[in-house]
Design a protein around this nucleic acid. Structure first.
Lengths: 181, 181
DNA sequence: AATGATTTGTTTATTAATGAACAAATTGTG
DNA sequence: CACAATTTGTTCATTAATAAACAAATCATT
């Protein structure tokens, strides 16, 4: 793992922060590369050095968060759902600005898709149709059921301003997961 | 006026902010260049690209604030002392972190000297010993009297946590100045 | 549809920042 | 004092960021 030049990290950090900030102010369509370079205090060309266009930037932004969530999942894979969910919702809470903005923006479908895809991967190994409560049921159906409800709950929680604290959400969702897996 | 590369401004900004932040945490003697480069997130060599050493950095930092104060003076030179003083104390208030830190640090004497020198320049033309209330008095004595008291008041105001708002200080000091000039 | 302005994406030469290495100076501890 | 560790200040080759210019595409407005 060769270490990265700090200039790269600083530029990308500035660009991403500027982009999120702009997303809270105007629609994705109205954000220009010039806007981003202005608020990031970075040369316009620098943005093209790291991203193809603003959609690529948005994708990479989403990808990074998905990556972080995956990391969290892996480091808590041996706990029960209720406690494993806590760092999950805490991460969402810590990055509330990003998630609420992305869900309210035109980037929402893109985010939703990546989110669903990620969750399917994560839950795939948890489904057991050979024995237990789900014996005889269809694997894909259960998977889709779980993932869709999970995404729905997260979307609801975020767009409604996080009406309950993370640990309550973790508890509630944990119970629902255990009931169905 | 050739415009400056934004990289220069960004680096210097990061370095100066890191330095001020470190000054609030430890003594000037205990601050290393490595400390500064770490908290500024800048290569150690970059600091030497802009400053000779930490004392030079401190000097330049002071110099810049003196320069700003001089600008304020010039843009308000035709008003009476009471109103001309307002932006003065407001500037001190806005940069409270810097001024309080510098006055509490080992850099205080250096700051005080530059401050005195600057004030002498500013008040030099205001003293009139040919007529009026100061007729017959010694110019240097009056100048020293005014400047010393001004510095003393500012030091007191800053180190005591700005017990009165800027406009009150401006009013009070304005009256005292008009009484003596 | 015409046209004028903005935005895009790319290229260019130049410059600042980087990390590493290094010897010298300074510091702190036994 | 001695000696180890840290800090300093400098050098170097490499790399990322920069501003400017440009044609092409997109956008508004008439």
């Amino acid at each position: 793992m060769s270490k990265v030049d700090r200039r790269i990290l600083k530029s990308q950090e500035a660009i991403k922060n500027a982009f999120i900030q702009l997303m809270t102010q105007k629609s994705l369509d109205d954000i220009t590369i010039q806007d981003i370079s202005d608020t990031a205090n970075v040369s316009r060309g620098t943005i093209y050095l790291h991203y193809l266009d603003k959609f690529d930037l948005l994708d990479k932004l989403i990808e990074e968060h998905i990556y972080e969530l995956r990391e969290i999942c892996e480091s808590a894979s041996d706990e029960d759902f209720r406690s494993a969910n806590v760092p999950w919702f805490e991460y969402l809470e810590n990055n509330y600005l990003f998630f609420s903005t992305i869900l309210a923006s035109k980037g929402a479908p893109s985010f939703r898709n990546q989110f669903v895809e990620f969750l399917i991967e994560e839950f795939k190994d948890e489904v057991d149709v050979t024995e237990g409560k789900n014996h005889g049921l269809n694997e894909d159906v259960i998977l889709q059921f779980i993932v869709t409800s999970y995404v729905g709950i997260v979307e609801w929680w975020i767009t409604n301003g996080m009406p309950y604290p993370p640990h309550v959400m973790a508890e509630q969702v944990g119970i629902l997961l255990e009931r169905n897996l």
